[in-house]
């Protein structure tokens, strides 16, 4: 465990908790893409199937449980409790265009052709594009609530910090994983224009609004 990975996990946890609290406190999921949250729930489910079979550490197991429960709770709040506030008119990104290619690619490019490994690879590929429905929703509505932009900033930072973690592990342990690395680069690149808007607008106290 190195500082980048720890900060990355922390940033990821903060993002997940910020989103859950935003929906719970404001009793509204306006501006949130339920489709992205479904994809994240699928990502955690397919990635953490080894939750009980492959014990790594208390930290690892407890974080996995927190991620899985929070992601399902978020999906439940969006499509269950607060579905009246769900923006289904704008949350229209076709997630099958993300699920099918990720599944096909997972069969073609993986480290080991075993069910757990293919599901892990699928979750890595899917996670790299899972934010697209959310970014699509923000671009369609042309703006995002400040709390939502903090959520996106924390979520984007997590994988950026993981890229630094992999750099660190490569030079210190000779460890590298091309599948996770290339997917992580794609995932982080997707946030670039958001990062620019966040730093140039939100940090100056303005609302995040996309140029019309």
């Amino acid at each position: 465990m190195n500082v980048f990975r720890f900060l990355g996990d922390l940033s990821h946890l903060v993002a997940i908790v910020i989103l859950l609290l935003k929906i719970w406190k404001t009793r509204s999921c306006s501006g949130i893409s339920g489709r992205s949250q479904i994809l994240f729930a699928i990502v955690f489910t397919t990635r953490y199937l080894d939750l009980f079979s492959n014990f790594i550490s208390v930290y690892n197991t407890s974080m996995k449980i927190v991620y899985i429960t929070c992601s399902y709770a978020t999906v439940y709040l969006i499509y269950g409790k607060f579905k009246a506030t769900y923006d289904f008119n704008h949350d229209t990104f076709r997630i099958e265009f993300l699920l099918v290619p990720s599944a096909i690619l997972a069969f073609l490019v993986n480290h080991d052709f075993s069910p757990l490994e293919i599901l892990w690879t699928f979750s890595i590929y899917l996670e790299s594009v899972a934010i697209l429905p959310q970014l699509f929703l923000v671009s369609k509505t042309g703006e995002a609530e400040t709390i939502t932009s903090h959520y996106l900033f924390a979520l984007g930072s997590y994988r950026l910090l993981y890229l630094l973690n992999w750099l660190w592990r490569y030079f210190s342990q000779g460890f590298y994983d091309l599948i996770a690395l290339l997917s992580g680069i794609l995932q982080t690149v997707l946030y670039c224009d958001f990062f620019y808007l966040y730093i140039s607008k939100v940090l100056k106290g303005k609302k995040l609004s996309l140029p019309a």
């Binding site: 996990d9 492959n54 974080m63 991620y67 480290h111 490994e117 993981y162 000779g174 460890f175």
Partner: peptide, 10 residues
């Protein structure tokens, strides 16, 4: 290189 299929990261 460490066995890549033992994923110790989240």
């Amino acid at each position: 290189v460490i066995a890549r299929t033992r994923h110790d990261e989240l």
